[in-house]
Computed example of a mutant assay.
Amino acid sequence: MNNKFLQFLGIAKKAGKLVEGYNKCEELLLKRKADLIILSTDISENSKKKFENYSSKHNIDIINAFSSSELGNILGSDSIKVVCIVDKKISEKLKSLLTENN
């Protein structure tokens, strides 16, 4: 159902507009360089709350619609819990693809 979203996420990675991993994303958020946060559905509650706080503090949207294995599969890893997009246009496209598929 969200195949286009995941495919575009893979394109964003190839374009270098995506950062994956808890620490790297947190660093980007502290520097206010992230435009979108993507959390896995199976992320821990503490981590989820931490990124939700960054989201509300810096007015950044969060997508929480895919498991860590789904994110990992498309991005070339076993599992990924946190992804940040660092390009405004790519962020907008991903959000539109998500709503299009839902």
Results as ranks from 00 to 15, higher is better:
Met1Asp: 08
Glu92Trp: 00
Met1Cys: 03
His58Trp: 13
Thr99Glu: 11
Asn102Asp: 04
Ile62Leu: 09
Asp87Met: 02
Leu9Phe: 07
Ile90Ala: 13
Phe51Ala: 09
Asn73Asp: 13
Ser96Thr: 12
Ile80Met: 08
Ser56Met: 06
Lys13Asn: 09
Ser91Cys: 11
Cys84Gln: 08
Ser91Pro: 03
Leu30Glu: 14
Asn101His: 13
Met1Lys: 11
Val86Tyr: 00
Asn53Arg: 13
Lys13Arg: 14
Arg32Lys: 15
Asp61Tyr: 10
Ile60Cys: 06
Asp35Gly: 00
Arg32Gln: 15
Ile62Thr: 02
Ile11Gly: 00
Gly21Trp: 03
Ser56Tyr: 08
Leu28Asn: 10
Ala12Gln: 02
Glu92Ser: 15
Asn2Asp: 11
Ile62His: 06
Lys88Ile: 06
Tyr22Trp: 08
Glu100Gln: 14
Leu29Val: 04
Lys17Ala: 09
Ser55Gly: 04
Glu52Trp: 07
Phe66Asn: 07
Asn2Ala: 02
Thr41Leu: 15
Ile38Ser: 04
Asn102Thr: 13
Lys13Pro: 00
Lys50Arg: 15
Ala34Thr: 02
Ser56Asn: 08
Ile90Asn: 07
Leu6Asp: 07
Ser79Glu: 15
Asn73Ala: 12
Ile85Trp: 06
Ile62Lys: 04
Val82Pro: 03
Lys17Asn: 12
Ile60Phe: 10
Ser68Val: 07
Ala65Gln: 11
Ser40Tyr: 04
Tyr22Glu: 09
Asp35Ser: 12
Leu29Gln: 04
Phe8Ser: 09
Glu20Val: 13
Glu45Asn: 07
Ile62Cys: 08
Ala34Lys: 05
Phe51Asp: 07
Glu52Ser: 09
Asn23Ala: 10
Ala15Met: 12
Ile62Gln: 08
Leu36Ser: 03
Met1Ser: 14
Ile80Phe: 07
Glu26Gly: 05
Asn59Ser: 13
Leu97Glu: 05
Val82Gln: 03
Val83Cys: 14
Glu92Gln: 14
Lys49Leu: 14
Lys33Asp: 12
Asn23Phe: 11
Ile74Pro: 00
Asn2Ser: 05
Ala65Ser: 15
Lys93Thr: 14
Lys89Ala: 10
Asn59Gly: 00
Thr41Tyr: 01
Asn64Pro: 00
Lys48Arg: 15
Glu52Ile: 05
Lys24Trp: 03
Ser68Lys: 03
Ile74Met: 04
Ile63Trp: 04
Asp78His: 09
Gly10Pro: 02
Lys95Phe: 02
Gly16Ala: 02
Ile60Leu: 10
Lys14Tyr: 03
Lys49Tyr: 07
Ala12Cys: 15
Asn46Pro: 01
Ile63Gly: 08
Gly72Val: 03
Leu97Cys: 02
Ile60Thr: 11
Asn73Gly: 07
Gly16Arg: 02
Lys14His: 08
Ser47Ala: 14
Ile74Trp: 01
Met1Tyr: 11
Ala34Asp: 03
Val86Lys: 13
Lys17Ile: 02
Lys89Trp: 00
Ile90Arg: 01
Cys25Phe: 04
Ser91Glu: 11
Leu18Trp: 04
Phe5Ile: 06
Ser44Gln: 11
